[in-house]
């Protein structure tokens, strides 16, 4: 279980996505890195969205499509001049099609240190049940 050696983190360039509709505010859009895992009762989604404040985050479930959208405000203050620029900031956008029925009233979201954790509980009826096959 315990790993003796921790591997070094590699640089991952942010992946840009083309804007769906014409944007009113210019700027790049990125797809955040996510982990998605599922248990019997719920689906959990963890996304890296550094720089997004809770007020600027939009989570929407509609017609089985989950949309995550976040705006990042440029952190640079006035009078700052670029010396070195290795990453860009902009919007985060990602959509997922949910194959399971989700109980929308029980969705929970937590944003901490730039990481969003979204818990999507499954509707009771779809929780797996053992089906007994009767043999006559």
């Amino acid at each position: 279980m315990a790993e003796t050696e921790t591997k070094a983190l590699r640089v991952k360039e942010k992946r840009g996505v083309p804007a769906v509709a014409e944007r009113t505010r210019p700027g790049p859009t990125f797809t955040p890195a996510v982990d998605i895992f599922e248990t019997d009762r719920e689906i959990t989604l963890v996304a890296d969205i550094p720089g997004v404040k809770a007020d600027n985050l939009l989570i929407d479930v509609r017609d089985n499509v989950l949309t995550l959208a976040g705006e990042v405000e440029a952190p640079e203050g006035q009078g700052e001049v670029d010396v070195l620029r290795e990453y860009d900031t902009g919007k985060y956008l990602r959509e997922f099609t949910l194959s399971e029925m989700i109980d929308q009233s029980k969705i929970e979201a937590e944003l901490k240190e730039g990481v969003l954790r979204l818990t999507l509980p499954k509707v009771e009826a779809v929780s797996p049940r053992k089906v007994k096959v009767n043999v006559e």
Partner: peptide, 11 residues
Amino acid sequence: ANYHRREREAG
């Protein structure tokens, strides 16, 4: 938990 996606890395 069964993973569908694992894109975030630790290190």
